[in-house]
Amino acid sequence: MALYTHHLPVWKKNQVDEIKQHFVDYPVVGLVDMYGIPASQLQHIRQNLREVAYIKMTRNTLTSRALDEVGGEVATMAGHIAGQSALIFTKENPFKLYKLLEQTKTKMAAKPGETAPEDIVVAKGPTSFKPGPIVGELQQAGIPAVIEAGKVKIKDTKTVVKKGEVISAKMADVLAKLDVKPMDVGLILRAAFQNGTVFAPETLAIDESVYLGKITLAAQQAFNLSVNAAIPTTETTGAILAKAVRDARSLGIEAGVYEKDIIDAIIGKAYRSSLALKGIVEE
């Protein structure tokens, strides 16, 4: 059931009405999570996206109410609101929007209590640390460390936090000292809406090079099928005629059909056969 803005204070009603109007003005809308983005980075992101998108930040409750009042499939986007959410409005398609938002992400150090987005791996090799308490800190964090040539060295590559696990304060401190930055910080797309359809981010996360490779392969296979099945098209007629000429020439040579364009080839074939036969007789 829709929630109506006449129960809201004027400033809140204006916020909801503004969001609803943006749904009229823009064909594509994304719901993003801004959690953990430093103010300076957010300002930089907004400047970079200014020509292609408008970011509307307000309270989650007002965003949810606006989505509910727009109704339809849009209302289901409210289920993705979490953390510090915002709406982003654009005239680009959802796939382009996803790609643009991925480009806003930068790597940052982990904070205690955050969840590892992927396996966090510490690579083996020398560090810049001199012998000292750091050796014990690394070992307590489960990182095999030794002293070698006057420097602290990590003996083996080790996965210290698995994807989905919570990063402890001790681990966050050690990772920061090792300059390991596992956290992607930027506008994270939770859902996008266009033409009555809500897209999940995993649907939009396509590898363009893989798809281009598949299209290229499909085109080549279609070309080969057309040529081999003698189905003429604008692109394949030349190749079909060339193949027909080659096949006819080969047939004529093998069958010994005396025709002026292949007589030399027939004589050459007969000569090679006579040489082969001569070699067998002499043996």
Results as ranks from 00 to 15, higher is better:
Glu137Asn: 14
Leu275Gln: 14
Lys177Phe: 11
Gly125Val: 10
Thr159Phe: 08
Gly164Glu: 11
Leu67Tyr: 01
Ser128Asp: 04
Tyr258Gln: 12
Pro182Glu: 00
Val28Lys: 00
Pro126Gln: 09
His6Leu: 10
Thr233Gln: 15
Ser128Val: 07
Ser168Val: 06
Glu148Ala: 07
Thr233Ala: 11
Asp173Ile: 00
Thr115Ser: 08
Lys153Asp: 10
Ala248Tyr: 09
Leu49Phe: 12
Lys91Trp: 14
Ala2His: 12
Thr76Tyr: 05
Gly72Tyr: 11
His6Val: 02
Phe89Trp: 08
Ile143Leu: 09
Val245Lys: 07
Leu49Arg: 12
Glu69Ile: 04
Lys163Val: 06
Ala39Trp: 06
Lys111Ile: 10
Pro144Gln: 00
Ser64Glu: 05
Leu87Ile: 07
Thr127Pro: 08
Glu18Tyr: 14
Arg65Ile: 01
Thr76Leu: 10
Leu225Arg: 11
Gly252Asn: 06
Val160His: 07
Ala222Phe: 01
Gly142Cys: 09
Val180Cys: 03
Thr216Val: 13
Gly150Ser: 09
Met171Trp: 08
Asn195Leu: 13
Lys13Pro: 11
Ala176Lys: 03
Ser85Phe: 04
Leu87Ala: 01
Glu92Ser: 02
Gly268Asn: 11
Asp33Arg: 10
Ile55Pro: 02
Gly142Ser: 06
Ile206Trp: 00
Gly150Gln: 07
Val70Arg: 05
Val198Pro: 03
Thr197Pro: 01
Val160Asn: 03
Ile167Met: 05
Asp68Ile: 11
Ile206Cys: 06
Ala192Asn: 01
Lys278Cys: 15
Lys13Trp: 08
Ser226Thr: 08
Lys260Ile: 13
Leu101Phe: 09
Gly83Phe: 07
Lys130Ser: 07
Val198Ala: 05
Gln140Phe: 14
Gly213Ile: 10
Ile147Glu: 15
Asn48Glu: 03
Pro117Leu: 06
Gln41Met: 10
Leu175Gly: 03
Glu92Arg: 12
Pro201Asp: 00
Gly186Leu: 10
Gln140Cys: 12
Glu51His: 13
Glu51Leu: 13
Lys96Asn: 04
Lys170Ala: 14
Val227Phe: 01
Leu8Asp: 03
Asp17Lys: 08
Ala255Gln: 15
Ala116Met: 01
Trp11Glu: 11
Gln220Glu: 14
Lys151Ile: 10
Lys170Glu: 15
Ala78Thr: 05
Lys260Gln: 15
Lys162Thr: 14
Ser85Ile: 05
Gly71Ile: 07
Glu137His: 15
Lys162Trp: 05
Met57Thr: 13
Phe95Gln: 03
Lys130Leu: 12
Tyr98Pro: 03
Asn14Tyr: 14
Gly132Leu: 03
Gly268Glu: 08
Asp264Lys: 09
Ile37Thr: 01
Gln21Tyr: 09
Asp68Ser: 12
Ile206Glu: 04
Glu202Asp: 09
Thr58Arg: 05
Tyr4His: 15
Gln221Tyr: 14
Val52Ile: 14
Val146Ile: 13
Phe199Ile: 03
Gln139Asp: 08
Ile267Ser: 04
Ala242Arg: 13
Gln140Asn: 14
Asn48Gly: 01
Ile81His: 06
Ala116Ser: 15
Tyr26Asp: 02
Ile188Leu: 13
Glu283Trp: 02
Phe199Ser: 00
Gln139Ile: 08
Asp17Gly: 04
Tyr211Phe: 13
Met34Glu: 08
Ala123Gly: 06
Asp156Thr: 12
Lys153Arg: 15
